[in-house]
């Protein structure tokens, strides 16, 4: 019973239908006098003309550039830090030298007084 029903439904769905009136005329008008359709075959397009190719190229470029930028940024930070360390040590060394010099001068002055 159900098999017959399925067959009927298929037959109904696949039955031949006549095109609407003027369909053929419309198609002819498009091909002869209408605006030309520029259909470029997929295989003929360059990779950069395809959205997927373009996205992949952008992703690859980003993958190549981002680590380089990060490495450069790290190098600059490292350089800045080492310079700061060096200057800090220099400043502290000069300060210590001045304190020790002052101490020595005071000791010499008080020694001479005795």
């Amino acid at each position: 019973m159900s098999e017959h029903r399925l067959e009927d439904e298929l037959r109904s769905a696949l039955r031949r239908e006549e095109p609407p009136a003027g369909f053929a005329a419309k198609i002819l008008a498009q091909t002869v006098g209408g605006p030309a359709l520029h259909l470029v075959p997929q295989r003929g397009r360059s990779w950069f003309q395809r959205p997927v190719g373009l996205a992949m190229a952008a992703a690859l470029a980003a993958m190549a550039i981002v680590p380089a930028v990060m490495v450069e940024q790290h190098r600059r930070e490292q350089e800045r830090g080492l310079k700061a360390k060096q200057e800090l040590l220099t400043a502290l060394a000069i300060t210590r030298q001045q304190f020790q010099q002052a101490k020595a001068r005071v000791e010499r002055a008080t020694g001479e007084q005795r």
Partner: peptide
């Protein structure tokens, strides 16, 4: 002449690099 000017940020950065080393 030797001019060394270390503001608070540079002082902390220098100290951090001393620790890192």
């Amino acid at each position: 002449t030797a001019n060394v000017t270390l503001n608070a940020d540079v002082l902390r950065l220098g100290a951090a690099f001393l620790s890192a080393d």
